[in-house]
Design a protein around this nucleic acid. Structure first.
Lengths: 335, 335
DNA sequence: CGGAATGATTGAATCGTTTCACGTGGGGGG
DNA sequence: CCCCCCACGTGAAACGATTCAATCATTCCG
């Protein structure tokens, strides 16, 4: 059984292909009786539109691509989920590409996506050297929206979260609970997110007269958090609270403290960042700074469609969201 | 700057479009000098192949779609990662669709994917009522590989993991550690995965003379695990170990036990299932039964490409993987 | 030196839709 | 009774790449 085309349907229904096309795309323009006949033929033959042909004529696809640094990272999956509904209601589907923080992979994916003439692109670029390739896309009329990176640097719309403010929220929460000495644990300071969170934290600590000690974790994951906290415990007067640059690090810190018999939150409070699903699932549910992830995705998609709708006259927008503190057991003690 | 076509390139290089096509697809068939001229023109014009046109001619796209129940579930993201490399080396990109366990969404996505004439489809169907729609796809020459569901039921290839064996592994591990009474915590028994894991566990327990008590969690998540374990603690002689149908439930159990001051593993051991990344990240690292997730994806993609290569003469294969036990701190005590 | 073999290039047909300028037939208004 | 307009349909021209038979030069061999 070969797939049948409009021509087959037209023949079967005794009409021209133009009419079949009308039944599909502007049903109000065709007489009831004819419509019925055509629809019957479609059903009988099991006809399915060929999107390639459609796209060819239209010049673009209806699909939106999103290129993320890591599909397994809950942050990105939530962003994807936020973006999906809009794309679907525009008749397209979301193509998710995992660059794995690898520039070459990212580049290859951008090439493929450009060949596919995607409607638009949501991307968290691997680093600033992607800028040039992205400009090429917009030059070829493929709008690009940056997610959580490089806001303002490029001729694109962007969505991001205010990390400095997130750092402030965390520090303020700890200060209010009476902590006089806190540790910050975060990965390489070259990562803007980490630097911003630390900056916000430092700002509030200085204001409130809280002693702040920064530990550099080898990486932003569980192992990094565990190691850093062990290093911290060796200090003569260890801080009574740790603020971690993300929840993975915080889970690592919790693990390290548990191993050393340090009670959380009684002897040491923990506060994480991102509020991933597993923050609440930890043995001691983690206080965390939540980013509006789904909304990030939703807004990114909105900006994309706005840019498409406005065409030439579009001016780029950079939307910044404010994070929010979610208090749980890991900081539930006042000193 | 309008996007330029092969015709433009041909004109710029002073050759015919056929030659340009050859430079792109069979470079060995065109003279050095000509090739150089054409490539120069391509670079100068910033020409990018139009995949729609290509697909139209070829009759199919080079993209593979994967429809999952939940993009945020680490199980599926790992499957996606396993499948990606193969698809990329075939010149395509992976379209990830999240059905969200919603039949209507799944249906809509299948329609779109069929219109797009995807090369093939990897899917974990929402339920058996998807079978009919999937058969329609194969009838239209779009091969389908089932992932972790409905193996053998349908005229498709499939990959799955032996859950009964996984249950046996867990029970054996606990029996070896000297536990005489264990609890199973799992969601509705109507889920085949849950039923199989329990069956395997029961089999070994009976064999080894271990008392087994099954608790039904309201759902397969953290809250479910916490509630079930609280119920368990109310028993006069509570079991000394719990086997959870998945890691989320196990994390919930750990949380519940921690809240009630029960020490893990000294007073109660825990063993989970899936070995998600966060199992190792728990305050007490969780012993878990690992499914070869990436390999599941890789193999699924392989089966897909085999089916494509073999064409008509293809006979469907059902590949079943054996899970593997990963021992960690949460069971590291012999009674 | 004729003819065959080899190599490079061309041109045109084709894939399946969409779109639009153009019939065609019937009904209503003048 | 004529004309115009409307509502439906038609047919053919795009869209941009691939493919293959046909053409044109060369080179090689006897």
């Amino acid at each position: 059984m070969t797939t049948s085309s409009m021509k087959d349907v037209a023949r079967a229904a005794g009409v021209s292909v133009g009419t079949v096309s009308n039944v599909l795309n502007r049903p109000e323009a065709v007489a009831e009786e004819t419509k019925r006949r055509v629809q019957a033929a479609i059903a009988r033959l099991g006809y399915v539109r060929n999107d390639s042909a459609r796209q060819l004529r239209a010049g673009r696809s209806r699909n939106v691509a999103i290129v993320v640094l890591d599909v397994a990272n809950p942050f990105f999956t939530d962003v994807v989920r936020g973006a999906e509904p809009l794309v679907h209601s525009a008749g397209g589907v979301v193509t998710v590409c995992d660059s794995g923080e690898d520039l070459r992979r990212e580049q290859r994916q951008l090439e493929i996506l450009e060949e596919q003439r995607v409607l638009g692109l949501l991307i968290t670029p691997v680093d600033d050297s992607s800028a040039e390739r992205l400009e090429r896309l917009t030059a070829h009329d493929i709008p690009v929206v940056l997610v959580d990176r490089g806001a303002g640097l490029h001729p694109h719309c962007s969505v991001a979260v205010d990390d400095v403010h997130g750092g402030r929220l965390a520090a303020r929460h700890l200060a209010e609970r009476g902590h006089a000495s806190v540790a910050f644990i975060g990965g390489p300071p070259s990562i803007p997110q980490v630097a911003d969170r630390l900056a916000g934290c430092r700002e509030v600590c200085e204001e409130a007269g809280v002693r702040l000690e920064a530990f550099t974790s080898v990486s932003l994951n569980v192992a990094g958090g565990r190691q850093a906290v062990e290093q911290m415990l060796r200090l003569p007067d260890a801080p009574t609270a740790v603020f971690c640059a993300n929840d993975l690090v915080a889970l690592g810190a919790l693990q390290g403290l548990t191993m050393h018999g340090v009670k959380v939150p009684e002897e040491c409070a923990i506060i994480g960042y991102d509020d991933i699903e597993f923050a609440a699932a930890a043995a001691v549910p983690l206080t965390s700074v939540r980013q509006p992830r789904a909304q990030l995705g939703r807004t990114a998609a909105q900006l994309l469609f706005e840019e498409i709708a406005e065409g030439k006259g579009h001016t780029h927008r950079n939307v910044v969201f404010q994070p929010e503190l979610v208090a749980r057991a890991s900081t539930a003690v006042d000193l």
